[in-house]
């Protein structure tokens, strides 16, 4: 049934509008503010649609602009999906369908929360840290300009492709998509992304940290060979990466106690300085 409606719909947005909206969506957070967060950017993203549908009608234009200046806060990439849905709704409204302001507002409010729930772990929790730590390790192993180029190209290829296809899915599916936000696909994506993210974080804890306890615990001379056992040696016997793991858990605990991240970084520096001063760290 939904498919029939799509076919009969008198389409008025052009491919050019899609491209313009896609480009403008990349400036979403330019007017990020404490009151309504991404509202100006979302309106900025909707302007090609508003121009196309309501050109020459100042009253409708003003109403549409104000509709899209309400509170908006989600993962930036996901506004392409919400934008696509809004484009489809605005188009139906302009074609005379009874879609009022409250419907458009409630669809936006209803989607931005779940979209942030999916987008944050995928983009900020997995894709960016994985690319960033891979590129950083390349940089530190002396691969030169290749490292920052890989970071830039890999991230932006994923981001731009996501924005384009999310906008397309949003526009093609319109409000159908909203009815299925609780569906298994979203949950599968969120869980899968969190599993990959947690797995990679577990990998990075021992791999991208260096900590050394040069303190000598014992010196034994057997058959003329001197074996020196340092504190670090004992930790490595237990499990390499054990101390970074404990430090990570200390940070997780302190963050949950609402300690500011920047104070935690200062705390790490204090541990480094104090540890070196008493001769425990080197």
């Amino acid at each position: 049934m939904a498919d029939n409606e799509t076919v009969e719909k008198q389409k008025r947005l052009t491919h050019g509008d899609m491209v313009k909206t896609f480009w403008r969506a990349g400036f979403l957070q330019g007017s990020w503010n404490y009151e309504r967060v991404q509202n100006v950017g979302f309106c900025f993203q909707m302007i090609p649609t508003i121009k196309r549908l309501y050109k020459g009608d100042d009253k409708e234009t003003a109403a549409a602009l104000q509709r899209h200046l309400t509170f908006m806060q989600t993962t930036p990439v996901m506004t392409s999906l919400i934008g696509g849905i809004s484009m489809a709704m605005e188009e139906e409204r302009a074609n005379g369908k009874p879609i009022d302001d409250a419907t458009i507002a409630s669809v936006k409010v209803g989607t931005m929360g779940p979209m942030a729930g999916v987008g944050d772990p995928i983009f900020w929790g997995t894709i960016r840290p994985v690319i960033a730590s891979f590129a950083a390790s390349l940089a530190l192993s002396g691969s030169g300009l290749l490292a920052p180029i890989i970071f830039f190209v890999a991230w932006n290829a994923i981001r731009l492709a996501s924005r384009w296809y999310l906008q397309k899915i949003g526009y093609d599916q319109g409000t159908n998509i909203v009815a299925n936000l609780g569906g298994s696909l979203i949950q599968k994506l969120t869980t899968g992304a969190s599993i990959l993210g947690m797995f990679i974080m577990g990998v990075l804890v021992p791999r991208w940290t260096t900590i050394n306890f040069p303190l000598v615990i014992s010196k034994a001379t057997v058959n003329g060979k001197t074996t020196v056992m340092t504190l670090q040696g004992i930790f490595d016997e237990l499990l390499p990466g054990l101390i970074p793991l404990l430090l990570t858990f200390m940070c997780i605990w302190l963050l949950r106690k609402k300690m500011n991240a920047i104070w935690l970084i200062f705390l790490m520096f204090a541990i480094g300085i104090f540890g070196y001063w008493i001769g425990l760290l080197g």
Partner: peptide
């Protein structure tokens, strides 16, 4: 020295 392990703050976040 701290530069070697300060990254754990980021991991924790």
């Amino acid at each position: 020295i701290a530069g070697g392990f300060v990254v754990v703050v980021g991991f924790a976040m």
